[in-house]
């Protein structure tokens, strides 16, 4: 039982260390990437940025949720 508890703690610490490594990912600018994606998608799909879809030019446009 004691050993198992130590094991669990070990796993927890290892998990945290891993999570620590994963923080490298935050250097990927997720918010900016999303902004860039929105800009490109709006152009490719010819959506009005930000605005709700007002009678889209083709039948399928829109930002419906």
């Amino acid at each position: 039982m004691q050993n198992r508890l130590v094991g669990w703690i070990g796993t927890g610490v290892a998990g945290l260390t891993l999570a620590g490594c994963v923080t490298i990912n935050i250097y990927f600018p997720a918010a900016e990437a999303e902004k860039a994606a929105d800009k490109i998608i709006d152009q490719v799909w010819q959506l009005k940025p930000g605005a709700k879809p007002a009678t889209p030019p083709a039948q399928t446009k829109g930002e419906a949720k």
Partner: peptide
């Protein structure tokens, strides 16, 4: 996009971001 920002290794994350946004912005139906 990854390359233009001097991080070619970002391509997979750019893809993940786009995947979500394409789907979020998809029209109903």
């Amino acid at each position: 996009i990854a390359r233009a920002n001097a991080h070619p290794e970002w391509a997979a994350e750019v893809r993940t971001t786009f995947a979500q946004r394409w789907i979020d912005k998809a029209a109903s139906g």
